[in-house]
Computed example of a mutant assay.
Amino acid sequence: MPFFPRPTSLESFTSLLGAAFLVSLSGCQAPSSGDAGKADAKAGVGKANTAAAAKPGDAKKAPAKQEPAAPADDGCLRYCFNGTPCGDECLEAGKTCDKPEGEGRACSEDKYTPREFREGFRLPPKSGLLGPDVWNYNKSQGDPLDGPFTLEMAFEGAPELADKSKGKLTAVFHTSMGAFECELYEDQAPLTVANFIGLARGLRPFKDPKDRKSDEWIKRPYYDGTVFHRVIADFMVQGGDPTAMGIGTPGYFIPDEFDPQLRHKGPGFLSMANRNPYDPATNKPRYDDKTGLTIGNTGSAQFFVTVRETMALNDRHTIFGYCDPTIPIEMSKVRTQSRPVPNKPFEDIVLEKLEFVRK
């Protein structure tokens, strides 16, 4: 199989300078029982050891004592993004844990106090965040949201989208090469799906990537009229950047959400691009020494659709949907340029509109 640089966003601008900026993120193996993984999915938790994160308010309840990081192959259920840690489960927010204090990896002794960032702090190149730090980082950038953008927020004004009885949540990509549909994995990657829908529907505030001097947070359909700016035959097609250069960002990050049941095992998988760091000596993700968490969580708005099996991307990019691959495969065959924007089609492939339905 030929080598391709992985899908990137934000600092992927380095590719324009001739540098191959590779990003990767993988984690530990899921618990063999699968029960903890199911609990994680309901709570919006990553399935690698970036997994879940205690909310900033919860950290105040944690005792001063910190347990050492668990081994990378122990199941990795340590933190909860949305919910209450309870033994090896993540309960819904506000629920009471009925397990003895200290039982299981996700109890209070394992909690991590999220890092604080100064106003306007910019994440350096080739670096990432721990899952628990994402919301504080976003706030330092001026994000008007204090915490995650949820599915409930994404469905605002569209009760038919919130009603699971009406069928599978589906995104319809209307493009200049035709329309294709993608089932969205709202249970396995709820925060990623919510962010995608919120941006597309104009509900999730963002900073205009085409006006980098502005500090204003705005709301409007983010993806309409954007192009697939990075197309690589026999690999993937990437879009979601209003600048059409691979450098656009909405001004915030979202946490990685990895599900051990979701693999890039063929064409049609819809995943988030990111700029997660990696160890150049091993081509593996970097880990935080104190918590054992992977350093990453740098996805935001750019996405890609695979056109073949790309198993090397597993646990490095969040899979949040599956598409009919017919049109993405045709997209991947168009002529592309080598400069000034590598792998950009000579003739724009436009994402005219995103539509969401239950079917």
Rank of each mutant, 00 (worst) to 15 (best):
D110H: 13
D98P: 15
P31A: 12
E257M: 10
P345T: 07
T318H: 10
C76S: 12
D348H: 02
A69H: 03
T8Y: 08
R105Q: 14
P209N: 10
P340F: 09
Y137W: 10
P250D: 05
F346P: 00
P7T: 13
Q29G: 14
K126H: 13
P260F: 08
F258D: 08
R6F: 10
L354S: 03
T326I: 00
H317W: 02
R263G: 00
T249Q: 07
S300V: 02
R335T: 07
L199W: 02
E101N: 12
L77A: 11
T170F: 08
N343R: 01
T84M: 13
V231A: 04
P345A: 11
V341D: 06
T249E: 10
G248F: 06
S176F: 05
Q188K: 13
I247E: 11
R316S: 15
L191C: 12
Q188C: 08
E347Q: 15
Y287M: 04
S140E: 03
F320M: 13
S300G: 13
A244T: 05
R335A: 09
N297E: 03
R6N: 14
W135Q: 12
Q337I: 08
Y137F: 15
G34I: 09
G198C: 14
P100E: 12
Q238T: 06
F13P: 04
F269H: 07
D289C: 01
V357E: 10
V341E: 02
R275F: 11
S26A: 15
S127I: 01
S127W: 07
G87C: 12
I254L: 14
D348S: 13
T113D: 15
P205V: 05
C86I: 11
E181R: 14
D279Q: 06
Y112I: 15
E181A: 09
P345N: 11
L145F: 12
A69M: 10
G292Y: 01
A41M: 11
T336D: 01
V307W: 01
A43R: 03
D348E: 14
L17P: 04
K38L: 09
K353E: 13
D234T: 00
P7H: 05
L10D: 07
C76I: 06
W217P: 08
K168W: 00
P71Y: 06
G292S: 11
Q302H: 09
A19R: 06
R263L: 09
D74T: 09
R204G: 03
A171R: 00
R335S: 11
G178K: 05
A158Q: 14
D73H: 07
G239P: 03
K290C: 04
Q302M: 11
G251M: 12
C182E: 04
R105V: 02
